[in-house]
C-alpha cells in the first residue's frame, strides 16, 4: 500500500487508529521513569539545562534549598526594580518576566512537574494557556477597543 493510501486509511478508515493514537495504555510501554516535561532534548544546551535542572537524580533537600534561594533572589530583584525610577516602559515587562520565571520554577521543581509524567504538565498547561489567552483577549477589549 502506498504511503498516501496508508495516510488516507489512517484518517478516514473506520478502524484507522494509527495516526491519531494517543499511546499510554496497559498494552503500550510505560513512560520512561522520571522523564522531564521537555522530553529527551538532544542539543548541547538542552542537555546542559537538563543536567542542572534535574540531571536524572532524585532531587535532594539541597536542590530544593538552592531553588528557594534563587526564588528569594529573584524576589529581591523585583523589589529592587520597584525602587529604580528610571526604567520607564521596561518596568512592567521586566517584572512580568521575573514573575514568570518564579512561577515556572515553583511548578517545575516544587510541584514536581519536572520529574513527574508529562500528563500533569499538559493538563495544567492547557488550563494556563486557555486562561491567559482568554483573559488577554478580554483585557484587550477593555483597554484598546472600548473607548
Amino acid at each position: 500500500m502506498s504511503a498516501i493510501a496508508k495516510l488516507w486509511n489512517a484518517i478516514f478508515f473506520h478502524r484507522g487508529n494509527g495516526w491519531f493514537d494517543l499511546p499510554r495504555t496497559h498494552q503500550t510501554e510505560a513512560l520512561p521513569p522520571h522523564e522531564g516535561p521537555f522530553g529527551p532534548m538532544k542539543a548541547k544546551t538542552a542537555s546542559w539545562l537538563t543536567r542542572i535542572t534535574y540531571g536524572g537524580r532524585h532531587a535532594t533537600p539541597g536542590f530544593y534549598v538552592a531553588v528557594a534561594i534563587i526564588l528569594t533572589i529573584l524576589t529581591l530583584v523585583e523589589v529592587w526594580l520597584f525602587t529604580v525610577t528610571s526604567l520607564g516602559a521596561l518596568f512592567v515587562p521586566l517584572l512580568l518576566f521575573l514573575s514568570v520565571v518564579k512561577f515556572v520554577m515553583v511548578i517545575g521543581f516544587f510541584m514536581h512537574l519536572r520529574f513527574d509524567p508529562k500528563g500533569f504538565t499538559y493538563i495544567f498547561a492547557a488550563g494556563m494557556g486557555l486562561g491567559v489567552t482568554v483573559f488577554l483577549v478580554l483585557l484587550t477589549l477593555f483597554s484598546k477597543l472600548s473607548g
Binding site: 499510554r24 496497559h26 522520571h34 509524567p117 500533569f120 493538563i123 492547557a126
Partner: peptide
Amino acid sequence: AHEDTSTGLNTRKLLMWTFLAS
C-alpha cells in the same frame, strides 16, 4: 512511578491537577 491506570498517571493527582487548572 507508573500507576496502573490508562494514562499511567495517579488518579488522585490527576484530579488535583485538573482542579488547579480550573
